[in-house]
Design a protein around this nucleic acid. Structure first.
Length: 304
DNA sequence: AGCGGTCAAGTTGAT
DNA sequence: ATCAACTTGACCGCT
């Protein structure tokens, strides 16, 4: 990453609103009805499409002055599915898609676009269920491999379920993190969520494990813990040996709404904490209008 | 081409 | 009990 850049690196999450760059998936229900060669052919075409889209996404971000891109976990769809899972090497177009993803990796590094992953809600470090844990570890292994392939440097997870006993659940999180292979642990980061685990819950876990903390200020505002934004921001930064990663969004129907958790199409500039504005951090913007929201935010900030 | 039902996985909380 | 929400709409069969 560049040492010349000043200020905030803005990150776009997964998708585009208007720019015609798309990522495709496959549905297990339908794919399962095909024979294996047809399954692999469809998966190959989809993975290749997604690789080309990733290249175009990186190029778009560079043109727009966007410095980060979160990659959708389903970029290799159904890769960890118990019946339909596959190795990239099995796909008929492997050589071409290998080259394509290498090209994406080289491009992201050259253009200094920070790539991240955010595995979905089924990936849990806190579960007491051995099956859930095993599937989560498989999912993390997948993300670790994918991250290595494209040079992504963060895999973001929440604390997971509380199961009525958060200290016990966090104990399982710590124990599991300590057993993770380095390819995953070196990229893993923990983010506060809007229902269960606050910054006050997770900062000690991060201190105990050396895993960095991702501060989502919207989640913190929905699910506060008595800590001030300034304090959490400072403590979050201190968990990062590299550029910190934060999340920002605005409530769909305002802070007075019965449910402020759903995300707005755009970012209300007042939701960007003052104390973030001088930091050298990555802020991933979770706004439904995607690249349009980032453009609007950048315009408003430069006009301010 | 466009529409509507459906889509791997776990947990929570609103209804 | 059901269901939407979660980092995110897209797929697929039908008309």
């Amino acid at each position: 990453m560049s040492n010349q850049r000043l200020g905030i690196r803005w990150g776009l999450c997964c998708l585009f609103k208007e720019e015609p760059i798309t990522f495709a998936i496959r549905q297990a229900t339908h794919l399962g009805k095909l024979d294996r060669p047809r399954q692999l052919a469809q998966l190959s075409a989809t993975v290749l499409h997604n690789g080309n889209s990733l290249i175009r996404a990186i190029e778009f971000c560079h043109r727009q002055g966007i410095g980060g891109f979160r990659v959708n976990s389903r970029i290799f769809p159904l890769k960890t599915h118990p019946q339909l899972g596959y190795l990239l090497e099995e796909l008929p177009e492997y050589d071409l898609l290998d080259q394509t993803y290498q090209q994406a990796a080289v491009l992201a590094a050259r253009l200094d676009i920070r790539l991240t992953f955010h595995p979905d809600q089924f990936t849990l470090l806190s579960s007491a269920d051995a099956g859930v844990t095993a599937r989560s570890l498989a999912e993390l292994a997948y993300h670790g491999e994918a991250a290595e392939r494209i040079g992504a440097d963060v895999i973001t997870l929440h604390g997971g379920g509380g199961y009525g006993d958060k200290p016990a659940a966090l104990g399982r999180v710590v124990a599991l993190i300590e057993r993770l292979p380095d390819s995953i642990r070196s990229r893993l980061a923990l983010e506060n969520d809007d229902r269960v685990y606050t910054p006050a819950d997770l900062l000690p876990v991060c201190a105990a494990t050396g895993i960095p903390f991702i501060y989502d200020v919207h989640h913190h505002r929905c699910h506060p813990d008595g800590l001030a934004i300034e304090e959490v921001s400072e403590r979050a930064c201190s968990t990062w040996a590299r550029e910190p990663l934060f999340h920002l969004s605005s409530p769909k129907e305002g802070w007075q709404a019965a449910n402020p958790r759903p995300h707005h199409d755009f970012i209300d500039i007042d939701d960007l904490p003052q104390c973030w504005r001088h930091l050298r951090i990555t802020i991933e913007v979770e706004a439904k209008a995607k690249e349009i929201a980032l453009k609007k935010l950048a315009d408003e900030l430069s006009a301010a």
